[in-house]
Design a protein around this nucleic acid. Structure first.
Lengths: 238, 238
DNA sequence: ACAAAAGTGTTATCACTACACCCATGA
DNA sequence: TCATGGGTGTAGTGATAACACTTTTGT
């Protein structure tokens, strides 16, 4: 495995005459210390040398875009089972100095605290707060903006917030996640009532340890129950 | 302009060695006689010879996917100003007998009654009711299903139903459109109240002509008002 | 005993549902 | 005058929003 430019793997052919290539770019969102972050890599290609870019790669001959995105996630985290959603394509003819590179953007969600970057990936990668990012290499800022928009939309429509949290979490953690990602304030009692009524949390009958205040109860997401309710037409909406 | 297979224009190069190509496919939805239809073309490529397929084409060197989709729409209808939404990519390695063809799917909306197919396109194209389509060439049925799903979702979230109707329409027409596309029944009075409350229709102070019953009032969509309300955070939801 | 965050219920408002009759027109 | 679809209001129910105090723990 070699690293070429902002591209993790350089396995796939680019046609040398046409300079035509298909790639995927992953906006890997992570959440930690009540802060939404994005996994970035430093670009080493002119004219974007030194700027941060997203994780991307060519789509190989024998995989589809989804598999390529999963491959990138596995390369970075070692994990195969990560939430992933396709957002849109980016295909302006001059978007990449290399030639004609059309990319399909995905975003994915990981809890940073549980995510060990693999040794191979670790030295090049950096978690950067979404708020702090003002520019990126290529059109990656635009890609990020689109993915962030889609994350916010999906967060209100589907129970994906759990993907950013540890398996066990308190209601406060969940609420703060929503508040941070959506950039809004939520009423504590209404938020809790809402989640109670959705019936998609399992009370673990456990509590936080070693906090210097009343310890919160811990819950986990009841994926099974949600799937069932979902097919019965549950409308998740926060 | 030549016609090659299901592809309207054959302007863009396919790499002959890799057989790598980028295309767009358009699910062009039309609405007429209370029926949702899709514009199709007969496939003349084995092993799908004779089956219907979507309108698609290569993405040329100097355009992005959006422009390619618009070009197809213009080629078919002569019109440049058509509602268009990107849905997702399709990139299974073996999805196309030609080689490695990755496509980006769009859907678009036109009122059939106002849409004259261009002479060049007319002889090859056919409007087919969505309900009647059970199979298509390539993976186009899957693409259609995905686009139909997205159309239904967007129809409830955004005021795009108007794109399928003539400029002037009655509330009944609008309601029937929703019922047909969403496959549900709506209450007449509740539907009308809802639309009144949204304040996005202009009463044209006109009525239907030559109908053998009380003529309905005609309205048009107030795009300007919607844009303003939308940026003020109006939540359109039907 | 104090600091810090967890946890809990009620009321008012708004949106949504269900539902039945009269009206205007052409034939 | 009849057939056809157009047009209207109300009452009941459920969801959402606003709001303040008590509880549990560690120090």
């Amino acid at each position: 495995m070699t690293r070429s430019d902002n591209i993790v793997l350089a396995l796939s052919p680019i046609d040398e005459d046409l300079k035509l290539a298909f790639t995927v770019d992953c906006v890997i969102f992570g959440y930690d210390n009540d802060d939404l972050k994005v996994l970035t890599i430093e670009c080493n290609m002119d004219p974007f040398m030194g700027m941060i870019s997203l994780l991307g790669d060519f789509i190989t001959q024998d995989e589809d875009a989804d598999s390529a995105a999963k491959r990138i996630l596995k390369y970075c985290t070692g994990n195969e089972d990560i939430f992933l959603e396709e957002v849109k394509s980016f295909s302006k003819p001059d978007r990449h100095p290399f030639g004609r590179v059309i990319t399909i953007a995905f975003y994915s969600l990981v809890p940073i605290s549980l995510t060990k970057l693999t040794d191979s990936a670790d030295k090049h990668l950096k978690w950067v707060s979404v708020d702090e990012i003002t520019e990126m290499a290529f059109d990656h800022k635009e890609i990020l903006d689109n993915c962030l928009y889609q994350l916010r939309k999906s967060l209100r429509e589907k129970p994906i917030g759990f993907e950013l949290l540890p398996k066990k979490f308190s209601l406060k953690q969940l609420q703060t996640l929503y508040e941070v990602v959506l950039g809004i304030e939520l009423d504590k009692r209404n938020f809790r009532r809402k989640l109670r009524s959705l019936n998609i949390l399992i009370d673990l009958e456990e509590r936080q340890q070693e906090v210097s205040h009343r310890p919160a109860k811990l819950y986990k997401f009841d994926e099974h129950s949600f799937e069932k309710k979902s097919s019965d037409g549950l409308k998740f909406e926060i």
